[in-house]
Amino acid sequence: MIDWMSQFALVLLDTCRDILPIAVTIIGFQLLVIRKPVVHPKKMLIGFIYVLLGIAFFLEGLQMALFPLGTLMANQLTTPEFLGISPTEQNVAWQTYYWVYIFAASIGFATTLAEPSLLAVAMKAEQISGGTIRAWGLRLAVSFGVAFGIALGAYRIVTGTELYYFILTGYIIVIVQTLFSPKLIIGLAYDSGGVTTSTVTVPLVTALGLGLASTVPGRNPLLDGFGLIAFASLCPIMAVLGYAQIAQWLNRRSLSSKP
């Protein structure tokens, strides 16, 4: 119990240290530049403490429950014994790793749904759009994007294709999509690329990438283990833009069918 308490205190302290620069910036500018008293200071302070405690509990819980299991699974799924190949075999077909792709997609989808930053942006978007953009719809679209992105990234590590080609193609698709998307969604779509990968997704996905790169013959974990996060930040942009385009198209169709 005492062991556990000290562990929690450490996590809480870490969180405080991470927040410190933000708190200093806000308080400094509030006092020196804005020079106006804060409205409801007590309520804000309590809210800030909630955020601190929330993040500390969140991280501690993840470290207790999900990270050990998730990284263990990522490692187990990429062992030669599980895949049924001999470690000396050089030419393994990419299909052999199908469980890895399925796992990558599912874990990407599930962790993105629980990502607190995405939750925050989705709440804000629903509030501003007056409910036209549903928080759940946005989160689902982003999660599908991440799932696809991480599975594709795993495939890239297995085949050893250059990261550059995929990202380049991705950028071109995003640019083309942007030209045809409703203007309202563009900012939100671009933002959703950046928010998908933080506390929950990064550690699990990194473990998967490094595990995969160290098992697949001919891959160097130092060079090929990276890039999954890049996919996870690019694909949600396409997913959200696509979601908006489909929604717009369906709207138009239902409008034109009802004269």
Binding site: Y50, I55, F58, A65, L66
Partner: peptide
């Protein structure tokens, strides 16, 4: 226990978000 922690943490975070970070 870890899952319960994560649930509690997420709840507190959302509460604090609306009360503090957004404002």
């Amino acid at each position: 226990v870890g899952t319960l922690f994560v649930v509690l943490g997420l709840t507190l975070f959302v509460q604090g978000l609306e009360q503090s970070l957004f404002p």
